[in-house]
Design a binder for these strands. Structure first.
Length: 394
DNA sequence: CGTCCACGTCTAC
DNA sequence: TAGACCTGGACGG
């Protein structure tokens, strides 16, 4: 499950499980791993973690202690190891006996029967770098460096990458560090921006808004709704517009604030029982409003990744692609798949309309709130579960 | 059995 | 912009 929220939950998991725990000896790498050895060995050390976008950094810190028995364990300097999770990476903390399959990097405690913090990665697309730093060309974290993230996007709209469809740019980690395939779908769904609108078109109006220090007035909101209507014909009806005008302006999130608030929602979901490998994905699936949801539409983007959406694909949608090799991300046409039985069963439906989260614009206040807020209270209003009530994508 | 699909990068024509 | 890198779950015959 690794997008920004899962990486952050992984860091919370490590800090929670390893608090007060002493590790010892060398860091062990699996035989099969192609990643580097981690040249760290110490009689007694601690592990802490932090995250940024789609990376996690572990800090291994030697404890002051008596003379080491093994010379190789002396004079060990602290070391950071920076992880990317690929498609399947996660951390687990188990006994040595219960070491999971695919535990490719392992840190052993000094306990009687050792316990082991391990980086588990069945597909091995994940990577780590000893003495690592945050990858240089990844942008600020969408979750925890929100103002810098926003600035980085809005001050670089001249970059040619913003000529690509917004759904594709949302996966560009230079600007959207932390967003992945499920988040882009959920974010665009809530913004009501068609996935294949040119990114610059979807974003440059936010730039203008940021330039004006004035609070939003209802008049401005009205104009925004009108603008939206122009580039998303399916989105806004007169009644919706009326509702928009009645809404508190501060409840209308723009695309960039959604890039912050939507991942934070996922984090807040997971924080209670945060073993990232366990119930989290089940909970996530129940939370999806668009990604892989029955009745939503899906197609391949220009990089052959599946984009889920509702309604109009937008002007830059790819024309039918030829069949290619049978491999990940190799283009194939795919229709919306339906969830296996057992999943959608008894859900009774809550009509789609409250997804009148339609407005593309927002106010300064929203940003302030979202940025500062540790919680993401704006959701939870309606259904939290996946269901086929969304049917009608057509 | 087989085929398709997956929450992500990387790098080589 | 194709692959390449991988394992494993879901589903079809």
């Amino acid at each position: 499950m690794p997008e920004g929220p899962e990486l952050h939950l992984a860091s919370l998991f490590v800090n929670s499980m390893c608090s007060g725990v002493v590790f010892t000896g060398p860091v062990q790498r699996s035989e099969v791993s192609k990643n580097s050895e981690v040249p760290f060995s110490c009689l007694a050390y601690t592990i802490t973690a932090t995250s940024r976008g789609k990376e996690v950094r572990l800090t291994l810190k030697p404890l002051k202690s008596g003379p080491a028995l093994d010379i190789s364990m002396r004079d060990q300097q602290p070391m950071d190891v920076v992880f990317r999770f690929g498609m399947s990476g996660l951390f687990r903390f188990t006994t040595e006996e219960e070491l999971p399959k695919h535990a490719h990097l392992r840190f052993y405690t000094n306990e009687k029967p050792s316990r082991v913090l391990s980086f588990v990665d069945s597909r091995r697309f994940g990577s780590w770098q000893p003495s690592g730093t945050w990858q240089a060309d990844r942008g600020p974290c969408v979750m925890f460096e929100y103002q810098r993230f926003r600035e980085n996007v809005l001050s670089n709209l001249n970059d040619r990458v913003f000529e690509r469809p917004i759904c594709e740019v949302l996966l560009n980690q230079k600007y959207f560090n932390g967003i992945g395939n499920y988040l882009r779908a959920e974010i665009l769904f809530r913004s009501n921006i068609p996935p294949f609108v040119k990114a610059r078109t979807a974003l440059e109006q936010l730039h203008l808004m940021d330039l004006s220090e004035e609070k939003q007035t209802h008049r401005e909101v009205k104009e925004e709704v009108a603008d939206m209507k122009m580039f998303n014909t399916t989105a806004v009806k007169e009644t919706d517009m009326e509702e928009k005008l009645k809404e508190e302006v501060t409840e209308i999130p723009d695309l960039l604030s959604l890039c912050n608030s939507v991942p934070l929602e996922v984090i807040n979901m997971g924080v209670k029982g945060y073993d990232p490998g366990q119930n989290h994905y089940t909970e996530l699936k129940a939370w999806f409003q668009c990604y892989s949801v029955a009745g939503m539409r899906s197609t391949r983007d220009h990089n052959s990744r599946t984009i889920w959406f509702k309604g109009d694909p937008g002007p830059l949608a790819p024309k039918a692609k030829k069949r290619l090799k049978n491999d990940d991300h190799a283009g194939k046409k795919k229709k919306a798949k339906f969830p296996k039985k057992g999943k959608v069963k008894k859900e009774v439906e809550v009509p789609q309309k409250q997804t009148g989260r339609k407005c593309v614009m927002n106010s300064q206040e929203v940003r302030e709130n979202v940025t500062r807020g540790r919680k993401a209270p704006q959701r939870h209003s309606g259904r939290m579960t996946r269901s086929n009530s969304h049917v009608q994508a057509q």
